[in-house]
Amino acid sequence: MIKTDELRGIIAKNGLSQADVASKIGITPKTFYEKMKIGVFGSDEIQIMIDELNITDPASIFFAKE
């Protein structure tokens, strides 16, 4: 389960919008919002977000336990 609130915070801290991140990972903003809603991204998408957003502790965000 992805901690979407933390991910949103990191996106904002980087001065980006969710639409910007969607573009970076090669999906539409609508698809990005849907993936945020269900909390599921592909491994390639996660890797791009880790790299582009300079996420230092990805496990705590992308592989969080409820």
Score class of each variant (00 low, 15 high):
Met36Lys: 12
Glu66Ala: 07
Lys24Pro: 00
Gly39Ile: 08
Lys65Asn: 11
Thr31Ser: 15
Pro29Met: 08
Ile50Pro: 01
Ala22Gly: 11
Val40Phe: 03
Ile50Gly: 06
Gly39Met: 05
Ala22Pro: 04
Phe62Arg: 02
Ser60His: 08
Tyr33Gln: 15
Met36Asp: 02
Thr56Met: 05
Gln47Thr: 12
Lys24Tyr: 06
Phe32Glu: 10
Leu53Phe: 10
Ser23His: 13
Ile61Trp: 01
Glu45Gln: 15
Ser43Met: 11
Asn54Lys: 12
Gly39His: 00
Asn54Cys: 07
Glu45Gly: 13
Asp57Gly: 03
Leu53Pro: 00
Asp51Ala: 12
Glu52Gln: 11
Glu45Trp: 03
Asp51Met: 04
Met49Trp: 04
Thr56Asp: 08
Val40Cys: 07
Ile25Trp: 03
Ile50Phe: 01
Ala59His: 09
Lys35Arg: 15
Ser60Val: 01
Phe32Met: 13
Gln47His: 09
Thr28Gly: 12
Lys37Ser: 14
Asp51Pro: 01
Pro29Tyr: 10
Ile61Arg: 07
Gly42Ser: 14
Ser43Tyr: 03
Lys37Trp: 01
Lys30Gly: 11
Asp51Trp: 02
Gln47Val: 10
Glu66Phe: 03
Gly39Thr: 04
Gly39Ala: 06
Thr31Asn: 13
Ala22Tyr: 07
Ile55Gln: 05
Ile55Asp: 08
Asn54Ile: 05
Ala22Arg: 09
Lys65Gly: 10
Ile55Lys: 06
Thr31His: 10
Asn54Gln: 15
Leu53Gln: 10
Ile48Lys: 15
Ile55Trp: 02
Lys30Ser: 14
Thr28Phe: 09
Asp20Leu: 06
Phe62Gln: 08
